[in-house]
Amino acid sequence: MSSLFVIIFLGTLFYLALSVNVKNYINLIGIQGLLLFGIAIFELHELNVVHLILILAETLIFKGIIVPGLLYRISKRNKISVLKNNKTHRKAKGFNMVIITALVIGLSFVFSHNQQDAHLEIQYFTAAISAMIMGILFITVNKNIIIHLISFLVIENGIFLMAIAVGSNMPMLVNAAILLDIFSSVLVLTVFLNRIGQFFQDVETDQLTELKD
């Protein structure tokens, strides 16, 4: 079952590469949150209530509900539904991105399989590395600030999978602090994103070029 979740997760990366609709991006990030919840539950070796609450808060509530909800509000308020540039250009770019996504996933899979480590969960490791690379790639190829924020969330999801893949055992307090930090950083980013929508004509990086040397 967890393999199915990982395959769907990788599928969302392809869809993110193709999409021109901001709503789709937001939906996909919500779906990734739900998938991570499923994966985390499957990987829960012992039933620990605090751990369960932490996972529930981080994946289902935060990544699956709150963040997509906030992004919907911002895109609606700032009237951003479709990415700028003409559709044909974006589709061509999307096609190239699909090929790149396939390459990234393929190479990540080969790389993960070459790790001679019995403790490493290869399927999660592949998905984690792919998500991190694709997140950085989405940031570099898109100019829309909402897509930047969504790409950052994709990287965060990759990190979450990485933590599962390597079986990280941070103390509970540290886990809670990390969760709080990630939650706050996304909240702060959405607040400033909203401000950018009010101050500037577009939420594109082209607007943010006043500060340079």
Binding site: L149, S185, L189, L208, E210, L211
Partner: peptide, 10 residues
Amino acid sequence: ALEAVWKYVF
């Protein structure tokens, strides 16, 4: 300030 803070936080 908004430009600086967005770039910084992001």
